[in-house]
């Protein structure tokens, strides 16, 4: 085998390394029209982004990150941020970004027509794009739907040792508690959470794992977002777990959104608004729904057939921004009752 002469080896390695460095440092050629997205949502949107570029010629450049960290980056970049759009999950996060002044008001009749009011910021700084229901999931072999009714009733002693909950450190259950505080007040919500804790729930830090635990019989009921079940059922149609739409007799099932806003210092503001308008259009909403199993925010788009099988249900139509306002209170409440 031919080998590089000894004297050349070190320079060869050095040049190779430098070359790789240059490959990283040399920036790509700047595209003409673009919209820059800071995204804390990393699944099921690629098709809609590509369709937008195809339709408008505007390139979508995405920077992925965790919400908390993206927030800090956006804030520290201030008026020099490259970001035009902030895309994230959970209304609490959107509320927090708006509160910190990171998002600018959007004036768009089209967005207002596409997305119902309770899924938008009251001051139009962000808009919900997909809807996720957080509801009761049960093992179809062990639980009859007639035994179930509401989030509150999961505190009934009959669920002792049969309940799986997500740890309270994740935002989904924090938002659920926050909207409950808005609906019922703090002391009633505390009572409900105490009921859950008294049932010694198995705490699991993943919705998917909760569903697998219910299927395997580790617990009989749990609370998760609906699309995690849809993903599992799409892989295994006989997956023995079904959703029960909680609180149909009262306030309706808790829903939350993933959504987006235009940043306060967007360089491509017009493109950004065009982008959000497109994402809320029936066409893009259909792509979202097909890929992610979420409910479209725009009622004109059809629900994914797999999810549609679970039927229509009454949603809690409290403005989702409440989740943000009361989230810190919800975390403290969880700490007080020992919901870990």
């Amino acid at each position: 085998m031919w080998r590089l002469p000894r004297v050349l080896r070190v320079p060869a390695v050095a040049f190779g390394f430098l070359g790789a460095w240059l490959g990283i440092l040399l920036p790509g050629l700047a595209g003409a029209a673009e919209v820059v997205v800071y995204s804390a949502r990393h699944y099921g949107q690629e098709a809609a982004f590509e369709a937008f570029t195809k339709k408008t010629g505007i390139q979508v450049k995405v920077f992925n990150g965790n919400t908390g960290e993206l927030f800090e980056r956006l804030k520290s970049e201030d008026e020099r941020t490259p970001a035009d759009v902030l895309l994230t999950v959970d209304a609490g996060n959107l509320w927090n970004a708006a509160r910190a002044g990171l998002l600018a008001k959007i004036d768009s009749p089209q967005l207002e027509a596409n997305v119902p009011g309770h899924l938008r910021d009251p001051e139009n700084r962000w808009v919900g794009l997909t809807v996720r229901a957080r509801t009761i999931m049960y093992n179809t072999a062990k639980v009859k739907p007639s035994e179930l009714s509401s989030y509150e009733a999961l505190g009934d002693p009959k669920w002792q040792g049969r309940l799986c909950l997500r740890t309270s450190s994740y935002i989904y259950n924090q938002s659920l508690l926050a909207t409950m505080i808005k609906r019922h007040g703090e002391s009633r919500t505390e009572e409900i959470a105490r009921g859950w804790v008294a049932n010694k729930p198995t705490l699991i830090n993943s919705d998917t794992k909760i569903l697998e635990a219910i299927a395997a019989g580790q617990c009989d009921v749990g609370l998760t977002n609906h699309y995690y079940l849809a993903r599992l059922v799409s892989k295994n149609p006989s997956f023995p777990v079904a959703p029960f739409w909680a609180n149909q007799q009262t306030t309706g099932t808790h829903v939350n959104v993933s959504g987006a806003g235009v940043t306060a210092h967007a360089k491509n503001r017009a493109n950004a608004i065009k982008f959000l308008e497109y994402l809320s259009s029936p066409e893009a909403q259909q792509l979202f729904a097909d890929l992610s199993f979420e409910y479209p925010a725009n009622p004109q788009a059809a629900v994914n057939p797999l999810v549609a099988r679970w039927g229509k249900f009454k949603r809690d139509d409290i403005n989702v921004a409440a989740a943000g306002e009361l989230q810190a209170a919800a975390v403290k409440l969880a700490d007080r009752v020992g919901y870990k």
């Binding site: 908390g68 800090e72 975390v331």
Partner: peptide, 23 residues
């Protein structure tokens, strides 16, 4: 620790940051 639901200081730090929006 988050995956295993074991609560340490670091876990509490993130809870305050992400949950209470208080970095």
């Amino acid at each position: 620790v988050a995956t295993f639901g074991y609560r340490t200081f670091t876990e509490a730090i993130y809870r305050v940051w992400y949950g209470m929006f208080d970095r």
